[in-house]
Design a protein around this nucleic acid. Sequence first.
DNA 1: AAGTGCAATGTTACAGGGTAACGTCATGCC
DNA 2: GGCATGACGTTACCCTGTAACATTGCACTT
Lengths: 181, 181
Amino acid sequence: MPDRAPVAAPVPAGDPAAAFARHDHARCAATAREVTARACAERGLRLTEIRARVLAILCESHAALGAYDVLDRLREDGRKAQPPVAYRALDFLVVNGFAHRIERLNAYIACGHPGDDHAPAFMICRSCRRVAECAAPAAAAALSPQAAAMGFEIERVVVEAEGVCPDCRASARETGGETGA
Amino acid sequence: MPDRAPVAAPVPAGDPAAAFARHDHARCAATAREVTARACAERGLRLTEIRARVLAILCESHAALGAYDVLDRLREDGRKAQPPVAYRALDFLVVNGFAHRIERLNAYIACGHPGDDHAPAFMICRSCRRVAECAAPAAAAALSPQAAAMGFEIERVVVEAEGVCPDCRASARETGGETGA
DNA sequence: AAGTGCAATGTTACAGGGTAACGTCATGCC
DNA sequence: GGCATGACGTTACCCTGTAACATTGCACTT
Ligand SMILES: [Zn+2]
Ligand SMILES: [Zn+2]
Ligand SMILES: [Zn+2]
Ligand SMILES: [Zn+2]
Protein backbone atom coordinates (compact mmCIF):
# COMPACT_ATOMS: atom_id res chain seq x y z
CA MET A 1 0.00 0.00 0.00
CA PRO A 2 1.47 3.39 -0.99
CA ASP A 3 1.77 6.23 1.46
CA ARG A 4 -0.81 8.95 1.48
CA ALA A 5 -0.48 11.95 -0.80
CA PRO A 6 3.16 13.09 -0.63
CA VAL A 7 2.37 16.70 -1.44
CA ALA A 8 1.55 18.97 1.47
CA ALA A 9 3.82 18.92 4.49
CA PRO A 10 1.94 19.48 7.74
CA VAL A 11 4.65 17.33 9.31
CA PRO A 12 8.40 17.81 8.78
CA ALA A 13 10.00 14.96 6.89
CA GLY A 14 12.24 13.81 9.72
CA ASP A 15 9.45 13.61 12.28
CA PRO A 16 8.61 10.13 13.59
CA ALA A 17 4.97 10.83 12.79
CA ALA A 18 5.84 11.24 9.11
CA ALA A 19 5.28 7.54 8.52
CA PHE A 20 1.57 7.97 9.22
CA ALA A 21 1.02 11.59 8.17
CA ARG A 22 1.00 13.59 4.98
CA HIS A 23 4.48 14.82 4.29
CA ASP A 24 6.86 15.61 1.47
CA HIS A 25 8.02 12.06 1.03
CA ALA A 26 10.13 12.72 -2.04
CA ARG A 27 12.21 15.01 0.11
CA CYS A 28 12.04 12.52 2.99
CA ALA A 29 13.49 9.75 0.82
CA ALA A 30 16.06 11.93 -0.90
CA THR A 31 17.37 13.15 2.44
CA ALA A 32 17.76 9.64 3.78
CA ARG A 33 19.70 8.57 0.69
CA GLU A 34 21.95 11.61 0.75
CA VAL A 35 22.71 11.43 4.44
CA THR A 36 23.54 7.76 4.10
CA ALA A 37 25.84 8.42 1.14
CA ARG A 38 27.64 11.12 3.08
CA ALA A 39 28.02 8.90 6.15
CA CYS A 40 29.49 6.13 4.01
CA ALA A 41 31.98 8.51 2.45
CA GLU A 42 33.05 9.78 5.86
CA ARG A 43 33.48 6.32 7.31
CA GLY A 44 35.13 4.70 4.31
CA LEU A 45 32.17 2.37 3.70
CA ARG A 46 31.42 1.37 0.15
CA LEU A 47 27.86 2.24 -0.83
CA THR A 48 27.89 0.06 -3.92
CA GLU A 49 25.31 0.11 -6.66
CA ILE A 50 23.32 -2.78 -5.20
CA ARG A 51 23.43 -1.38 -1.68
CA ALA A 52 22.31 2.03 -2.87
CA ARG A 53 19.55 0.45 -4.91
CA VAL A 54 18.28 -1.55 -1.94
CA LEU A 55 18.33 1.56 0.22
CA ALA A 56 16.36 3.42 -2.46
CA ILE A 57 13.81 0.61 -2.56
CA LEU A 58 13.38 0.74 1.21
CA CYS A 59 13.07 4.52 1.05
CA GLU A 60 10.20 4.43 -1.42
CA SER A 61 7.66 4.10 1.36
CA HIS A 62 7.42 3.79 5.11
CA ALA A 63 6.06 0.27 4.83
CA ALA A 64 8.33 -2.56 5.94
CA LEU A 65 9.53 -4.77 3.07
CA GLY A 66 10.46 -8.41 3.35
CA ALA A 67 13.80 -9.52 1.95
CA TYR A 68 11.98 -11.25 -0.89
CA ASP A 69 10.00 -8.11 -1.67
CA VAL A 70 13.32 -6.31 -2.05
CA LEU A 71 14.60 -9.17 -4.15
CA ASP A 72 11.61 -8.94 -6.46
CA ARG A 73 12.22 -5.24 -6.90
CA LEU A 74 15.87 -5.89 -7.78
CA ARG A 75 14.74 -8.39 -10.39
CA GLU A 76 12.40 -5.82 -11.90
CA ASP A 77 15.55 -3.85 -12.66
CA GLY A 78 16.64 -6.67 -14.95
CA ARG A 79 19.08 -8.26 -12.49
CA LYS A 80 18.93 -11.98 -11.99
CA ALA A 81 19.52 -11.67 -8.28
CA GLN A 82 19.40 -14.59 -5.86
CA PRO A 83 18.41 -14.34 -2.16
CA PRO A 84 21.93 -13.79 -0.81
CA VAL A 85 22.22 -10.65 -2.91
CA ALA A 86 19.31 -9.05 -1.11
CA TYR A 87 20.33 -10.34 2.31
CA ARG A 88 23.90 -9.11 1.96
CA ALA A 89 22.83 -5.62 1.00
CA LEU A 90 20.27 -5.54 3.82
CA ASP A 91 22.87 -6.76 6.30
CA PHE A 92 25.23 -4.01 5.26
CA LEU A 93 22.54 -1.37 5.75
CA VAL A 94 21.39 -2.76 9.09
CA VAL A 95 24.86 -3.31 10.55
CA ASN A 96 25.90 0.23 9.70
CA GLY A 97 22.71 1.83 10.96
CA PHE A 98 21.17 2.85 7.65
CA ALA A 99 18.22 0.50 7.91
CA HIS A 100 16.43 -1.46 10.62
CA ARG A 101 15.13 -4.96 10.82
CA ILE A 102 11.60 -5.25 12.23
CA GLU A 103 11.66 -8.53 14.14
CA ARG A 104 7.92 -8.77 14.44
CA LEU A 105 7.53 -8.74 10.65
CA ASN A 106 10.79 -10.32 9.51
CA ALA A 107 11.09 -7.21 7.37
CA TYR A 108 13.13 -4.08 6.87
CA ILE A 109 12.75 -0.29 6.76
CA ALA A 110 15.11 2.57 5.98
CA CYS A 111 16.44 4.36 9.03
CA GLY A 112 14.97 7.77 9.83
CA HIS A 113 18.24 9.05 11.29
CA PRO A 114 20.91 7.30 9.23
CA GLY A 115 24.37 7.42 10.67
CA ASP A 116 23.29 8.62 14.09
CA ASP A 117 23.86 6.29 16.99
CA HIS A 118 20.38 5.85 18.39
CA ALA A 119 18.15 3.48 20.37
CA PRO A 120 15.08 3.15 18.17
CA ALA A 121 11.61 1.94 19.03
CA PHE A 122 9.06 1.14 16.36
CA MET A 123 5.31 1.59 15.94
CA ILE A 124 4.08 -1.04 13.51
CA CYS A 125 0.67 -0.84 11.85
CA ARG A 126 -0.61 -4.38 11.55
CA SER A 127 -2.96 -3.32 8.79
CA CYS A 128 -0.74 -1.42 6.30
CA ARG A 129 2.71 -2.50 7.53
CA ARG A 130 3.92 1.08 7.74
CA VAL A 131 6.40 1.62 10.57
CA ALA A 132 7.25 4.78 12.50
CA GLU A 133 10.68 4.98 14.05
CA CYS A 134 10.74 6.75 17.40
CA ALA A 135 13.48 7.59 19.83
CA ALA A 136 12.65 5.82 23.06
CA PRO A 137 15.77 5.56 25.20
CA ALA A 138 13.58 5.34 28.29
CA ALA A 139 12.09 2.04 27.16
CA ALA A 140 15.47 0.38 26.87
CA ALA A 141 16.82 2.06 29.98
CA ALA A 142 13.95 0.66 32.02
CA LEU A 143 15.54 -2.79 31.72
CA SER A 144 19.00 -1.90 32.96
CA PRO A 145 18.36 -2.28 36.70
CA GLN A 146 16.86 -5.74 36.32
CA ALA A 147 19.61 -6.82 33.96
CA ALA A 148 22.26 -5.62 36.37
CA ALA A 149 20.54 -7.36 39.27
CA MET A 150 20.71 -10.74 37.57
CA GLY A 151 24.14 -10.24 36.02
CA PHE A 152 22.83 -10.12 32.49
CA GLU A 153 24.80 -8.02 30.01
CA ILE A 154 22.48 -6.29 27.54
CA GLU A 155 23.88 -5.72 24.08
CA ARG A 156 20.81 -4.71 22.17
CA VAL A 157 17.17 -4.00 22.96
CA VAL A 158 14.27 -4.56 20.59
CA VAL A 159 11.23 -2.39 21.25
CA GLU A 160 8.36 -2.83 18.83
CA ALA A 161 4.80 -1.66 19.41
CA GLU A 162 2.17 -3.25 17.23
CA GLY A 163 -1.15 -1.59 16.64
CA VAL A 164 -3.16 0.44 14.18
CA CYS A 165 -2.09 3.70 12.56
CA PRO A 166 -4.35 6.76 12.32
CA ASP A 167 -5.17 6.20 8.65
CA CYS A 168 -6.14 2.59 9.14
CA ARG A 169 -8.19 3.45 12.21
CA ALA A 170 -10.07 5.99 10.13
CA SER A 171 -10.62 3.47 7.34
CA ALA A 172 -11.94 0.95 9.81
CA ARG A 173 -14.32 3.48 11.25
CA GLU A 174 -15.68 4.41 7.81
CA THR A 175 -16.47 0.83 6.90
CA GLY A 176 -17.81 0.21 10.38
CA GLY A 177 -15.90 -3.05 10.34
CA GLU A 178 -12.74 -4.42 11.83
CA THR A 179 -9.31 -2.93 11.36
CA GLY A 180 -8.15 -5.43 8.77
CA ALA A 181 -6.90 -4.40 5.32
CA MET B 1 22.31 -26.56 26.80
CA PRO B 2 20.56 -27.83 29.96
CA ASP B 3 20.01 -25.58 32.92
CA ARG B 4 22.44 -25.63 35.77
CA ALA B 5 22.02 -28.04 38.65
CA PRO B 6 18.35 -27.92 39.67
CA VAL B 7 19.05 -28.82 43.27
CA ALA B 8 19.81 -25.95 45.60
CA ALA B 9 17.53 -22.94 45.57
CA PRO B 10 19.40 -19.71 46.25
CA VAL B 11 16.75 -18.11 44.06
CA PRO B 12 12.99 -18.70 44.44
CA ALA B 13 11.50 -20.55 41.49
CA GLY B 14 9.23 -17.71 40.39
CA ASP B 15 12.00 -15.13 40.29
CA PRO B 16 12.89 -13.68 36.88
CA ALA B 17 16.52 -14.45 37.63
CA ALA B 18 15.71 -18.16 37.92
CA ALA B 19 16.36 -18.62 34.21
CA PHE B 20 20.05 -17.89 34.76
CA ALA B 21 20.55 -19.03 38.33
CA ARG B 22 20.58 -22.27 40.27
CA HIS B 23 17.08 -23.04 41.40
CA ASP B 24 14.73 -25.91 42.03
CA HIS B 25 13.67 -26.28 38.45
CA ALA B 26 11.59 -29.40 38.98
CA ARG B 27 9.42 -27.35 41.29
CA CYS B 28 9.58 -24.40 38.89
CA ALA B 29 8.25 -26.51 36.03
CA ALA B 30 5.65 -28.33 38.10
CA THR B 31 4.25 -25.05 39.39
CA ALA B 32 3.92 -23.61 35.89
CA ARG B 33 2.05 -26.70 34.70
CA GLU B 34 -0.26 -26.76 37.71
CA VAL B 35 -1.08 -23.08 37.62
CA THR B 36 -1.83 -23.34 33.93
CA ALA B 37 -4.08 -26.33 34.44
CA ARG B 38 -5.98 -24.51 37.16
CA ALA B 39 -6.36 -21.38 35.03
CA CYS B 40 -7.73 -23.47 32.16
CA ALA B 41 -10.24 -25.13 34.44
CA GLU B 42 -11.41 -21.78 35.79
CA ARG B 43 -11.79 -20.24 32.38
CA GLY B 44 -13.34 -23.20 30.63
CA LEU B 45 -10.34 -23.72 28.37
CA ARG B 46 -9.50 -27.23 27.26
CA LEU B 47 -5.96 -28.17 28.19
CA THR B 48 -5.91 -31.21 25.93
CA GLU B 49 -3.26 -33.91 25.95
CA ILE B 50 -1.25 -32.35 23.14
CA ARG B 51 -1.42 -28.87 24.64
CA ALA B 52 -0.37 -30.13 28.04
CA ARG B 53 2.47 -32.09 26.46
CA VAL B 54 3.73 -29.03 24.57
CA LEU B 55 3.58 -26.97 27.73
CA ALA B 56 5.54 -29.66 29.55
CA ILE B 57 8.14 -29.64 26.79
CA LEU B 58 8.52 -25.88 27.04
CA CYS B 59 8.75 -26.15 30.82
CA GLU B 60 11.67 -28.55 30.71
CA SER B 61 14.17 -25.74 30.53
CA HIS B 62 14.36 -21.97 30.33
CA ALA B 63 15.79 -22.13 26.82
CA ALA B 64 13.56 -20.99 23.98
CA LEU B 65 12.44 -23.79 21.67
CA GLY B 66 11.60 -23.42 18.01
CA ALA B 67 8.31 -24.84 16.79
CA TYR B 68 10.20 -27.59 15.01
CA ASP B 69 12.13 -28.45 18.17
CA VAL B 70 8.78 -28.92 19.89
CA LEU B 71 7.58 -30.96 16.96
CA ASP B 72 10.61 -33.24 17.18
CA ARG B 73 9.92 -33.79 20.85
CA LEU B 74 6.31 -34.70 20.10
CA ARG B 75 7.52 -37.21 17.55
CA GLU B 76 9.84 -38.77 20.10
CA ASP B 77 6.65 -39.64 22.01
CA GLY B 78 5.66 -41.84 19.10
CA ARG B 79 3.20 -39.38 17.57
CA LYS B 80 3.39 -38.79 13.85
CA ALA B 81 2.77 -35.09 14.25
CA GLN B 82 2.92 -32.61 11.40
CA PRO B 83 3.86 -28.92 11.80
CA PRO B 84 0.30 -27.62 12.31
CA VAL B 85 -0.03 -29.83 15.37
CA ALA B 86 2.83 -28.02 17.08
CA TYR B 87 1.77 -24.58 15.88
CA ARG B 88 -1.81 -25.02 17.01
CA ALA B 89 -0.78 -26.05 20.49
CA LEU B 90 1.72 -23.19 20.71
CA ASP B 91 -0.90 -20.72 19.49
CA PHE B 92 -3.29 -21.89 22.18
CA LEU B 93 -0.67 -21.42 24.86
CA VAL B 94 0.45 -18.02 23.60
CA VAL B 95 -3.02 -16.61 23.00
CA ASN B 96 -4.11 -17.58 26.49
CA GLY B 97 -0.99 -16.29 28.19
CA PHE B 98 0.57 -19.63 29.17
CA ALA B 99 3.58 -19.24 26.89
CA HIS B 100 5.37 -16.46 25.05
CA ARG B 101 6.75 -16.16 21.57
CA ILE B 102 10.25 -14.68 21.39
CA GLU B 103 10.23 -12.69 18.16
CA ARG B 104 13.97 -12.33 18.01
CA LEU B 105 14.42 -16.10 17.95
CA ASN B 106 11.21 -17.27 16.27
CA ALA B 107 10.89 -19.46 19.32
CA TYR B 108 8.78 -20.10 22.40
CA ILE B 109 9.07 -20.30 26.18
CA ALA B 110 6.67 -21.20 28.97
CA CYS B 111 5.28 -18.21 30.81
CA GLY B 112 6.65 -17.49 34.26
CA HIS B 113 3.32 -16.12 35.53
CA PRO B 114 0.74 -18.16 33.67
CA GLY B 115 -2.75 -16.79 33.73
CA ASP B 116 -1.75 -13.39 35.07
CA ASP B 117 -2.34 -10.41 32.82
CA HIS B 118 1.13 -8.96 32.49
CA ALA B 119 3.39 -6.89 30.21
CA PRO B 120 6.48 -9.03 29.88
CA ALA B 121 9.96 -8.09 28.77
CA PHE B 122 12.59 -10.69 27.96
CA MET B 123 16.32 -11.06 28.47
CA ILE B 124 17.64 -13.40 25.80
CA CYS B 125 21.09 -14.99 26.03
CA ARG B 126 22.46 -15.17 22.50
CA SER B 127 24.82 -17.93 23.55
CA CYS B 128 22.61 -20.50 25.31
CA ARG B 129 19.15 -19.29 24.21
CA ARG B 130 17.87 -19.20 27.76
CA VAL B 131 15.33 -16.44 28.33
CA ALA B 132 14.38 -14.61 31.51
CA GLU B 133 10.91 -13.13 31.70
CA CYS B 134 10.77 -9.83 33.55
CA ALA B 135 7.96 -7.46 34.39
CA ALA B 136 8.77 -4.16 32.74
CA PRO B 137 5.62 -2.09 32.48
CA ALA B 138 7.76 1.06 32.37
CA ALA B 139 9.32 0.06 29.07
CA ALA B 140 5.97 -0.26 27.34
CA ALA B 141 4.55 2.78 29.09
CA ALA B 142 7.39 4.92 27.79
CA LEU B 143 5.89 4.64 24.31
CA SER B 144 2.37 5.80 25.17
CA PRO B 145 2.93 9.57 24.89
CA GLN B 146 4.51 9.30 21.44
CA ALA B 147 1.84 6.91 20.25
CA ALA B 148 -0.89 9.22 21.47
CA ALA B 149 0.78 12.21 19.83
CA MET B 150 0.71 10.59 16.42
CA GLY B 151 -2.68 8.95 16.80
CA PHE B 152 -1.29 5.43 16.86
CA GLU B 153 -3.25 2.87 18.85
CA ILE B 154 -0.90 0.42 20.55
CA GLU B 155 -2.26 -3.10 20.99
CA ARG B 156 0.85 -4.96 22.03
CA VAL B 157 4.47 -4.12 22.83
CA VAL B 158 7.42 -6.41 22.26
CA VAL B 159 10.40 -5.75 24.52
CA GLU B 160 13.32 -8.09 24.06
CA ALA B 161 16.84 -7.48 25.33
CA GLU B 162 19.55 -9.57 23.73
CA GLY B 163 22.84 -10.15 25.44
CA VAL B 164 24.84 -12.63 27.46
CA CYS B 165 23.73 -14.35 30.63
CA PRO B 166 25.94 -14.64 33.74
CA ASP B 167 26.83 -18.28 33.10
CA CYS B 168 27.87 -17.69 29.53
CA ARG B 169 29.84 -14.62 30.52
CA ALA B 170 31.71 -16.73 33.05
CA SER B 171 32.37 -19.44 30.47
CA ALA B 172 33.70 -16.88 28.04
CA ARG B 173 36.02 -15.50 30.68
CA GLU B 174 37.37 -18.93 31.54
CA THR B 175 38.26 -19.71 27.97
CA GLY B 176 39.54 -16.18 27.46
CA GLY B 177 37.72 -16.19 24.14
CA GLU B 178 34.56 -14.73 22.75
CA THR B 179 31.11 -15.32 24.16
CA GLY B 180 30.05 -17.87 21.54
CA ALA B 181 28.95 -21.37 22.52
C1' DA C 1 53.49 -6.01 -16.07
C1' DA C 2 52.70 -9.78 -13.28
C1' DG C 3 51.45 -11.30 -8.73
C1' DT C 4 48.81 -11.03 -4.50
C1' DG C 5 45.08 -10.04 -1.31
C1' DC C 6 40.66 -8.53 -0.28
C1' DA C 7 35.88 -7.13 -0.65
C1' DA C 8 31.86 -7.66 -3.21
C1' DT C 9 29.05 -10.17 -6.12
C1' DG C 10 27.16 -14.44 -8.74
C1' DT C 11 25.12 -19.03 -8.10
C1' DT C 12 23.69 -23.38 -6.28
C1' DA C 13 21.48 -25.85 -3.10
C1' DC C 14 19.41 -26.44 1.02
C1' DA C 15 17.68 -25.69 6.00
C1' DG C 16 14.28 -23.61 8.95
C1' DG C 17 9.81 -21.32 10.00
C1' DG C 18 4.88 -21.05 9.01
C1' DT C 19 0.17 -21.74 7.05
C1' DA C 20 -4.03 -22.74 3.87
C1' DA C 21 -7.12 -26.07 3.09
C1' DC C 22 -9.49 -30.00 3.69
C1' DG C 23 -10.86 -34.34 6.00
C1' DT C 24 -11.85 -36.84 10.30
C1' DC C 25 -13.39 -37.45 14.88
C1' DA C 26 -15.32 -36.68 19.41
C1' DT C 27 -18.33 -33.99 22.33
C1' DG C 28 -22.38 -31.81 23.64
C1' DC C 29 -26.80 -29.85 22.57
C1' DC C 30 -31.65 -29.73 20.52
C1' DG D 1 -31.06 -39.05 15.55
C1' DG D 2 -29.37 -34.73 13.61
C1' DC D 3 -26.41 -31.00 14.08
C1' DA D 4 -22.86 -27.61 15.45
C1' DT D 5 -18.48 -26.98 17.38
C1' DG D 6 -13.80 -27.49 18.42
C1' DA D 7 -9.72 -30.26 18.22
C1' DC D 8 -6.83 -33.15 15.66
C1' DG D 9 -4.74 -35.58 11.26
C1' DT D 10 -2.63 -34.81 6.68
C1' DT D 11 -1.17 -32.87 2.48
C1' DA D 12 1.01 -29.62 0.13
C1' DC D 13 2.76 -25.65 -0.12
C1' DC D 14 5.00 -20.66 0.70
C1' DC D 15 8.20 -17.50 2.96
C1' DT D 16 12.60 -16.60 5.33
C1' DG D 17 17.43 -17.27 5.68
C1' DT D 18 22.17 -19.25 4.99
C1' DA D 19 26.33 -22.36 3.91
C1' DA D 20 29.47 -22.94 0.53
C1' DC D 21 31.96 -22.12 -3.35
C1' DA D 22 33.09 -19.69 -7.90
C1' DT D 23 34.04 -15.36 -9.91
C1' DT D 24 35.04 -10.60 -10.58
C1' DG D 25 37.24 -6.24 -9.91
C1' DC D 26 40.20 -3.25 -7.69
C1' DA D 27 44.21 -1.73 -4.88
C1' DC D 28 48.62 -2.50 -3.54
C1' DT D 29 53.20 -4.80 -4.01
C1' DT D 30 57.31 -6.20 -6.33
ZN1 LIG E 1 8.52 9.82 4.17
ZN1 LIG F 1 -1.92 1.52 8.84
ZN1 LIG G 1 13.16 -23.09 36.30
ZN1 LIG H 1 23.72 -18.00 28.35
